[in-house]
């Protein structure tokens, strides 16, 4: 790695930190501008209880003071504070709990989407305009255009209610299968289409013809030359795919009642659980920023022609 690349990576890391800080700041003030509050309920608590709670959690101080205190705690102590809704629990513990499940869900979905997508895409490209290719294209087009809440509900109705094959709630290991498939279908279909067109593009290149003409075996041409080169666009899709999986999990976790960070995020907003909103936002934003960074660097590794500047 030359110094130019190193400098580039450093610069990107600084930019990433700035991005996360901007996200923190915007979220903090926007969140507090939403009407309502964490201690509101169908049955009102007394004014003295309200005041005692606000004091306890420091919500009685001026907003800018709360902001700097929060920022200081996060930066210096990595302290996200206590949840206002789940009394007695720390935000970091709740996030860690949710993360265990969400990470499982996200990583398996991403890996499955990548493997199945690339295989199907390559397969379709090699069988171009044959029946298999057409079937694959029709199916993937359908999945790319169907939002996950429709696919999710359909699969829930079919596999869990009608056929009774899989549990409907994502609390068990078996229960994660449907959410994983739901979450993986869109990126898988997208990767299939991407790989297919990129593969077709590569297969038409001169060097492939040269290789074939030189008598290189078909397998070697495909795996050694064509597939490797056709994966570059797939790698660029890596970042957006993870962003999709992170945001998609918000919906999918809701449908299958998967106890992940996506669900925690959604409910923290409805509850106005301020520290919890901040905590989940920071974690999700950091995740997306890191993934984009990694995919940019990977891009460079796969294709040395690309100039990172």
């Amino acid at each position: 790695m030359n110094s130019k690349t190193l400098f580039y990576i450093l610069k990107r890391i600084v930019l990433a930190l700035v991005t996360v800080w901007i996200v923190i700041t915007i979220t903090f003030f926007v969140m507090r501008a939403i009407p309502g509050g964490p201690f509101l309920g169908e049955k009102a608590i007394s004014a003295s209880a309200q005041a005692a709670l606000e004091k306890k959690y420091g919500l009685d101080k001026p907003l800018h003071e709360q902001y700097f205190t929060y920022l200081g705690d996060v930066v210096t102590k990595f302290d996200f504070g206590p949840s206002l809704k789940q009394r007695g629990r720390m935000v970091i513990d709740i996030i860690a709990d949710g993360m265990k499940t969400s990470a499982k869900l996200g990583v398996i979905s991403a890996v499955a989407a990548l493997i199945v997508g690339v295989v199907l895409g390559a397969f379709a490209a090699l069988r171009r305009n044959k029946l298999v290719d057409k079937v694959i294209m029709v199916i993937t087009t359908a999945f790319v255009s169907m939002p996950s809440f429709i696919i999710g509900s359909l699969m829930l109705a079919l596999f869990s209610v009608k056929l009774g094959l899989l549990p409907a709630n994502g609390t068990t290991a078996a229960g994660l299968i449907l959410p994983i498939i739901t979450l993986a279908l869109y990126p898988m279909s997208y990767i299939t289409r991407l790989t297919r067109s990129s593969m077709l593009d590569v297969l038409g290149q001169d060097y492939i013809r040269t290789a074939k003409a030189k008598g290189v075996s078909g397998t070697k041409v495909i795996f050694g030359h064509a597939l490797k080169n056709s994966l570059i666009p797939v790698i660029t899709y890596f970042g957006p795919m993870l962003a999709y999986i992170v945001t998609g999990s918000l919906v999918v976790e809701q449908i299958y009642a998967v106890p992940g960070i996506g669900r925690a995020f959604v409910s923290s907003i409805t509850n106005r659980d301020y520290p919890m909103i901040m905590g989940t936002t920071i974690v999700l934003a950091t995740l997306i920023v890191i993934m984009n960074l990694v995919s940019d660097i990977l891009y460079k590794v796969v294709d040395p022609r690309i100039n990172l500047e």
Partner: peptide, 18 residues
């Protein structure tokens, strides 16, 4: 006590006997 607030989800678990 399974924890779920999704009525559809609850019903499918009830229907399949879990």
């Amino acid at each position: 006590f399974y924890l779920s607030d999704d009525a559809n989800n609850q019903l499918s678990n009830f229907k399949n006997g879990e």
